[in-house]
Design a protein around this nucleic acid. Structure first.
Lengths: 343, 343
DNA sequence: GGCATTTTTGCAACCGGTTGCAAAAGCGTC
DNA sequence: GACGCTTTTGCAACCGGTTGCAAAAATGCC
């Protein structure tokens, strides 16, 4: 069915090696034979079989892209950037959806069977051990959006969640609130743990401010809404740091339903700055992760590791920044107001 | 580096064929040798190279998943369903992002080089010719969310957009509006054309109702918002059918910014019922496409075509239905109210 | 033109599997 | 134990490429 090297060689009147060489850049072919081969190839509509060549070269140009986040709209942006970035570098993403409870070992075996050159694990909720399993299997891997570790066993690219927690705390402090809170995602997510830690750390410098923490059941709208409804009943804080934009939007929904105004009655700062956060309709003050940089670095790092497999595990963290929008009161720099403590 | 069949054969004291056979179901191996091989394989951590075997079997179990919609949150749900559905059937999605203006011919060549068993084109905006190019290249293909055609050259799975346009029209008529409009996505998208057609067709039966049509520049929040702002200035209709949920949310944002109330002043019915549409915060009345069914059918169809390449091109359309929420006035079935015409 | 040197070319072996075929082994029966 | 039949096994060729090596062709120089 498909046209192979042999057909082209026959038609061009050269050996199969010659055909192989005209399609391998840097190989030694005379201009004359190259022309003959290219003509024959064009006439037959030949294009080399990447899989067959991978057998001898040991490279498939396949990159496993593993994620368990198929419900957070941010990940559509992430997939967009990853697929484009990989394509631009001549690599092909083999997508693995870990969202149902498929055995992780399964996907590792699968990706090995397909001889992927490397793997990118894109998730802030998977444990470090998951990415490490690839490394033990001898597959170059980088964990994007993973947790920073001082003795990493695996490349990590992402952000400093502790610093972000601090940053959020400071944004709330700057509003003069005397009662603030962190509303995290599931407590088991490392990203949530770190943000909580940074938040508390920063608040320790403001002992006069009341701090509390609670966790939503998932990084989802419903979970955020439910958790905020619970908080509203219990008596809410003045300013919330929500561990994710979707969570924030859920919280906003609960707050408005309760007849309260954001940011007048309650202020919210979210996390991620997904596209939707910028919609005028939502207009969420939030903390932006520099996705393009993180993803570019992830790809570069996995490529570098493919080339030098013994490269030391490395952590690359990118700075985040607050995006001021409408869910926190405007910041008057000349005069950071301090709300009066209640009587 | 990697452990191959030969290593296992050596260790188990059998031939390479024996190893191959124990990993090929339905092959003839005695229980005794199978046990020996499995033991050796386990000890060495062997798993067969899928790519090498594809050379002789002609099957890679790779499915090209091609899309150009990496900005509409609906597609995250779609990718989730596709990847899970493919994985469940032992197939692997090779993701292709067509969103930048990469030459389509390029991705066809690429997918051929990787010998994908089949291709699924998931897009409502790509022209039919794109999917057809795969078919001419001899690659089984189905176009999901594609346009229905009476003489299809390619399998299409999706919805009847004309019928949906009609359905939306009827939903607006039922509210007793005397001035309605369709606000589509880009006029070049076949889905928009069809929805517009169905909408107009249905409205032809209500000559007393004013109908107008306009198009947003893209299927995006900003485009929907901008277009609605324009309409508001020009004097808006009472009820709008927006060709997509994201567009609808953009429109909602413009309407609220103008100080108007939905659904009291203006009613909106969207399209797609993406997850977000159900958020209380948004609460969009919309038309739901049965995504799981469409995606299941797409996968089944591509598998069937791989098995019988000469299968006739087929169209499978699934019924949509209106999801009543808060952006159209409630429907009082006993007494469909008819607003008084203006003086 | 002759010679040494460089470039190009084809042969053949290999990558990691599968599979048709014939020989070998196993089995049941007399 | 011999016989016929079925099952299991290994050999060898093949899938579609790549690549080291030595022979062949081209090139440069005198």
């Amino acid at each position: 069915m498909a046209v192979t090297m042999k057909d082209v060689a026959l038609r061009a009147g050269v050996s199969r090696s010659a055909v192989s060489r005209t399609f391998t850049k840097g190989a030694s072919v005379s201009a004359k034979t190259r022309a003959k081969v290219e003509k024959a190839a064009a006439e037959l509509g030949y294009s080399p079989n990447a899989l067959a060549s991978s057998l001898t070269t040991g490279r498939t140009k396949l990159i496993g892209l593993v994620s368990n986040n198929f419900h957070n709209p941010l990940f559509l942006e992430i997939f967009d950037l990853f697929t484009r970035g990989l394509q631009d570098r001549g690599l092909r993403p083999l997508l693995v959806n870990l969202s149902d409870e498929t055995d992780p070992a399964n996907s590792i075996r699968m990706l090995r069977q397909y001889s992927v050159d490397g793997v990118i694990v894109a998730s802030s909720t998977l444990p470090p051990s998951f990415a490490e399993a690839f490394r033990s299997a001898g597959i170059p891997v980088v964990h994007s959006f993973g947790r920073y570790s001082t003795s990493p066993h695996v490349h990590v690219v992402g952000i400093d969640n502790v610093a972000c927690g601090r940053m959020a705390a400071e944004a709330l402090v700057a509003r003069g609130y005397h009662r603030v809170a962190f509303m995290g995602g599931p407590e088991s997510a490392t990203s949530t743990q770190d943000r909580a830690r940074g938040f508390l750390e920063a608040m320790r410098e403001h002992p006069d401010i009341d701090v509390s923490i609670s966790y939503a059941a998932a990084y989802s709208f419903d979970a955020g809404r439910a958790e905020m409804q619970r908080l509203l009943k219990a008596g809410p804080a003045q300013g919330y740091f929500c561990g994710d934009d979707v969570l924030s939007i859920g919280a906003l929904s609960a707050i408005r339903d309760a007849g309260l105004n954001v940011p007048r009655d309650i202020g919210i700062i979210g996390f991620n700055d997904m596209e939707m956060a910028g919609w005028e309709y939502i207009n969420l003050t939030t903390i932006r992760q520099p996705l393009p940089e993180i993803i570019d670095a992830s790809i570069e790092l996995v490529i570098a590791t493919i080339e030098h497999p013994d490269r030391h595990p490395e952590t690359r963290l990118f700075p985040c920044r607050v995006i001021e929008r409408g869910t926190l009161p405007p910041l008057d720099r000349a005069n950071t107001p301090r709300l009066a403590k209640p009587a």
